[in-house]
Structures are given as structure tokens and as C-alpha cells.
């Protein structure tokens, strides 16, 4: 069931600023990406550690939980084999995020062609029904809100980290978090504590 969203003043901020560069603390990413392109597996491990939470959040917002981990692996392997196509190392975050979104779309298309498995297979630690119910609501939020909230609430990334990884400006992330949280409260029927 799709929810009707109040688009308008809540329109998500999703644009990546033209010419955006990697933020402070990640100045070495460009060198890391060049090293990955040269086949340096240690550099790839560093890149993986830096971006795995972002990729995980993007996929978790789109595909069944049971397949998220495998798709994360697919995304990074795809990024590794295609990294020569990346012209601007500063755009890596947005680039791998796009790979993740495309991989999720492919997965959903393929899934329709095969026998459907239950949405959430049991396994590992039991996830409470409330967690899955809230995840279901978050998944129905607009993309920018959904992804930003999952990075913050699931992966524990700070607003600045989200901005650094995604290439969004901190102001955009702040808006996405604020508006996304507001919309999520409404969907859940929660009143904000003042």
C-alpha cells in the first residue's frame, strides 16, 4: 500500500551540488580511489569500511532485509570493477549510491520473475515486529528522507558523516533529517515531545 505524501513544502532535497568535493577528513579519498583503480586491495578495504553503512542504508530502504547483505557485497564488487569509469574521485559517494539504487531496482525486477519468498525470513537475532513495522513506514517515505533517516537511525551516522559520504551539503542533510523525521512522526501517529 502506498501512502499519499504531502509533497510541496516537504519536497525532499536530493540534489548534489555541482562540483562538490569531498569534505574535510576525507581528503585522502581521492588518493584511495586512485589506488583502488590501480588494483590496491587494501585501499579497497578502506573504501569499503568508509561507505558500507551508507550503501547498507540505501539498500535496506528498498529491498527485503534478508538480501541486503548480499546486495551490499554486489554493489562494492560492481564499484570495484567499474571504478575506471569514475572520472571525478570526489563524486565517489554519489556514484556508489547510484550503483546501490540501480542494483536494488534490478533486484526487485528479478524478484518479480522468480518465486517470491516471504518478505522477512527468520534467522539470526529475532527482530521485533515493531522494528519491522517502523522500517516498513520509513521505506514509504520519499527517497531522500528515507535514505537520510536510515543512515542516521539505523547506521548511527551523524549529519556531518551523512553529508561527507553522500556528497550532499550539510544543510541539505539537516533539512532531510528534519522534514523526514516530521513526516515519520506523522505516519507513526507520534506527537512531538516539546
Amino acid at each position: 500500500m502506498e501512502h499519499v505524501l504531502e509533497i510541496g513544502r516537504l519536497y525532499p532535497v536530493l540534489t548534489v551540488p555541482r562540483g562538490a568535493t569531498l569534505n574535510s577528513g576525507r581528503g585522502n579519498d581521492a588518493a584511495t580511489i586512485r589506488a583502488v583503480a590501480a588494483g590496491d586491495e587494501d585501499a579497497f578495504s578502506r573504501l569499503y569500511a568508509g561507505y558500507v553503512r551508507m550503501v547498507h542504508a540505501i539498500l535496506l530502504g528498498r529491498v527485503p532485509r534478508r538480501d541486503v547483505d548480499d546486495l551490499v557485497q554486489d554493489v562494492f564488487i560492481s564499484a570495484y570493477t567499474r571504478i575506471g569509469e569514475l572520472r571525478d574521485a570526489a563524486a565517489f559517494g554519489g556514484w556508489i549510491a547510484a550503483i546501490a539504487r540501480n542494483r536494488a531496482t534490478d533486484y526487485l525486477r528479478q524478484s518479480r520473475e522468480h518465486v517470491e519468498l516471504p518478505e522477512e525470513l527468520p534467522g539470526g537475532d529475532p527482530i521485533e515486529a515493531e522494528t519491522l513495522a517502523i522500517l516498513d513506514v520509513v521505506r514509504k517515505l520519499p527517497e531522500a528522507y528515507r535514505e537520510t533517516l536510515l543512515m542516521r537511525l539505523v547506521e548511527g551516522m551523524s549529519g556531518n558523516e551523512i553529508a561527507e559520504r553522500t556528497g550532499l551539503t550539510p544543510a541539505s542533510v539537516r533539512v532531510n533529517l528534519h522534514r523526514g523525521m516530521k513526516l515519520l512522526r506523522e505516519k507513526l501517529g507520534w506527537q512531538r515531545h516539546e
Binding site: A49, V52, H56, I127, T131, I134, L150, G156
Partner: peptide, 15 residues
Amino acid sequence: LLGRLRAPLAGAPAP
């Protein structure tokens, strides 16, 4: 609630 869904791969080796 949602933190239970956190990436288990964060501390794992790259593929």
C-alpha cells in the same frame, strides 16, 4: 528499534 538492523558488515572484511 532500528539500530538492530545496522549493517553487520561494518566491521567485516571487504568482499
